[in-house]
Amino acid sequence: MSKNDISIQKAQKEDYDELRKIFLKTRQENFNWMEYDSIKLEDFDSSTEGELILTAKIGNDIAGFVSIWEEDKFIHNLFVSSNFKRCGVGKALIDQSVKEVGLPLTLKCVRANVNALNFYLSQGWTIEEEVIENEPYYLMKYEDISVLEK
């Protein structure tokens, strides 16, 4: 699959059931620092309330999504279905986020989420700060202006 096979658009209400499933399943599969039973389908709604949500589709399948708190250019959620990992979906969602809200983008990456951390670093994100709280995390920043030139 190439990046040309990925289409990104603003989420429609009819997408939400599938987005909830991706949010739930991805967290269950990867968030081993959380209690499995504490992860709920309806978490998607409270976690994305008031945010811009962009969906990535490959063919007719929703492959992932990003939700952004627009006024701060803060990526709150970026999830890719396990069926579409390593297909360029995460990068495409970041690139479209830049086009929608501008730079710099920021996000928090839980320190225990090593796969996500490695992905962000590979995409040119930088660690701005390490925060030690209940769930230690990195505050990360993305400033790649070349995305805007595409």
Rank of each mutant, 00 (worst) to 15 (best):
K40A: 10
F44E: 14
K40C: 09
S38E: 13
E70W: 00
D37A: 02
E71Y: 13
E49A: 13
W69V: 09
E29A: 02
E49T: 11
A56H: 06
W69K: 11
S47H: 11
E42M: 02
F44M: 13
Q28P: 09
D43S: 09
W33A: 08
S38Y: 03
A63P: 03
E35Q: 08
S67L: 00
E49F: 06
K57F: 02
L41P: 10
S46C: 09
W69M: 12
T55G: 12
E42I: 04
K73T: 13
A63Y: 05
S38Q: 09
F74C: 07
D43A: 06
E51W: 03
G50N: 13
I68L: 03
K57S: 14
W33P: 01
I62N: 02
Y36F: 11
S47C: 09
S46I: 11
G50T: 14
A56W: 01
L52R: 01
I39F: 09
W69A: 14
A56N: 06
E70H: 03
L41D: 15
A56E: 11
D72I: 02
V66I: 08
A63I: 04
R27T: 10
I62K: 07
S47T: 09
L54F: 01
E51I: 00
S47E: 15
S46R: 13
G64V: 06
D72N: 14
E35Y: 00
F44D: 15
A56D: 10
L52S: 04
L54A: 08
K40E: 15
Q28S: 07
E35D: 14
F44I: 12
V66P: 00
D37N: 10
I58L: 04
E49R: 11
G50W: 08
D43N: 12
E42G: 04
D45H: 07
E51A: 00
I53A: 03
D45K: 06
T55L: 05
Q28H: 10
E51R: 01
T55R: 04
V66Q: 02
K40I: 05
S38M: 06
K57L: 09
R27D: 09
G64R: 05
N32I: 05
N30G: 11
E51D: 15
I68A: 10
L54M: 06
L54H: 03
D43E: 07
F44K: 11
E35R: 08
K40Y: 10
Y36R: 10
N60Y: 06
S47F: 00
D45F: 02
V66H: 01
S67I: 01
N32S: 09
L52Y: 02
G50F: 04
G50A: 10
T55E: 10
R27G: 08
S46Q: 10
E35V: 07
G50E: 12
N32E: 08
G64F: 00
I39M: 08
D43M: 07
